[in-house]
Simulated assay, not measured.
Amino acid sequence: MYCIISLILISFTWMKSSLAVQCDTNPCELGGNFLPPNYQCLQITDNFNDVICTCPDGHVETNTRCRICDKINCGPNGICIERSFFENLHYTCGCTNGTVNYLNPGPCPNTYPVTTTPSSVICLNGGTYNTATGTCVCPASFTGLYCEQSIVEPINCQKVVCANGGVCNPVQTIENGVDIQCSCLNGFAGRNCELVGVSGGCTAVICNNGGTCEERVNGAATFAYCRCPSGISGQRCETSYFSCPAPGIYADPINCKFGRYFQCIGLTLSTLSCPRANAHSK
Rank of each mutant, 00 (worst) to 15 (best):
N88T: 03
N88H: 09
N88G: 14
H90P: 01
Y91S: 00
T92G: 05
T92P: 06
C93A: 05
N97G: 05
T99C: 04
V100T: 11
V100W: 11
Y102L: 01
Y102W: 07
L103K: 09
L103G: 02
N104E: 00
N104W: 05
P105F: 00
P107E: 08
T111G: 14
P113K: 03
V114K: 09
V114I: 10
V114N: 05
T115D: 05
T115P: 00
T115Q: 12
T116N: 12
T116L: 10
T117C: 08
S119W: 08
S120P: 01
V121C: 02
V121E: 06
I122Q: 15
C123F: 13
N125C: 01
N125H: 13
G126H: 14
G127A: 03
G127S: 03
T131N: 12
A132P: 00
A132C: 02
G134R: 05
C136I: 04
C138K: 07
P139H: 09
F142L: 00
G144L: 01
L145G: 08
Y146G: 00
Q149F: 04
V152L: 15
K159S: 12
V160R: 10
V160W: 11
V161S: 11
V161L: 14
V161W: 13
N164M: 01
G165V: 08
G166L: 02
G166I: 07
P170A: 01
V171E: 15
Q172R: 13
T173W: 15
E175H: 08
N176H: 13
G177I: 02
I180L: 07
Q181R: 12
Q181W: 00
C182N: 04
L185A: 04
N186V: 09
G187M: 03
G187D: 11
A189C: 02
G190Y: 04
R191K: 10
N192Q: 09
V196N: 12
S199Y: 14
T203F: 03
A204W: 02
N208G: 00
